[in-house]
């Protein structure tokens, strides 16, 4: 049986590898080039840097709060968990909708972008599900305290990983597309985590 810190490291490695490989292969398959989302946003580099740093900070903080074990081995405190969990998804939605770094385009070359973001939804759901699964495995039976809040925090963290994936993949800044294809799956993953994880996390 692996110790928790090793399981956490493996879960983080899985999350990073799966996110990178899904984004890379989907970009190559759909648009024929890597990380088109980042390239299309280079027209406003300062905004891209700002949103990118904010997203990475959000990812780091939510993941740390969800996975850390703390001084007593009982995980992050309830206040930290609740704050990060409740703030992560709304902050992601704010970043995605209020600071659109991508242009409002409907086609890339000959490839049409779905107005409701069907491809982005699938990619976000795939990445989110794998990250949620790996984080749940890492924290399974690890912390006997606050399982419901911790589930919400893990779900939110997995959602942010999915949000980062579509941010890098998708070149569209259309608000309807972003709402359905980017923000909705992030919220859905957080909700699924909240409902499904308590029984897994409890020792």
């Amino acid at each position: 049986m692996l110790r928790t810190h090793l399981r956490n490291a493996i879960a983080l490695a899985i999350a990073s590898c799966v996110t990178a490989s899904v984004v890379a292969s989907a970009s190559k398959l759909v648009y024929g080039e890597l990380a088109l989302g980042l390239r299309s946003a280079l027209s406003s580099p300062s905004l891209l840097a700002l949103v990118g740093v904010a997203l990475l900070t959000l990812l780091f903080v939510s993941t740390l709060a969800a996975l850390r074990r703390g001084r007593l081995g009982l995980g992050s405190s309830a206040v930290v968990l609740l704050t990060t969990a409740m703030a992560s998804v709304p902050l992601y939605a704010l970043l995605a909708l209020a600071f659109p770094v991508h242009e409002d385009i409907t086609t890339v070359g000959s490839v049409a972008i779905s107005p409701l973001g069907a491809r982005c939804f699938v990619i976000a759901a795939l990445v989110g599900a794998v990250v949620l699964g790996s984080f749940a495995w890492a924290m399974r039976a690890a912390v006997p305290v606050g399982t419901h809040v911790r589930s919400l925090a893990i779900g939110s963290a997995a959602g942010i990983w999915a949000g980062l994936a579509v941010f890098v993949f998708c070149p569209s800044g259309d608000s309807l597309h972003v709402s359905f294809g980017h923000v909705l799956p992030v919220a859905a993953i957080a909700l699924i985590g909240t409902l499904a994880l308590p029984a897994i996390l409890r020792p």
Binding site: M1, L2, H5, R71, G73, L74, V143, P144
Partner: peptide, 22 residues
Amino acid sequence: RARATYVRGANALYWAFAIARS
């Protein structure tokens, strides 16, 4: 069953209390 998840240096008694309460 959950012994592998114990964090080195953490208070084992408090951890056991938390499991008992759960």
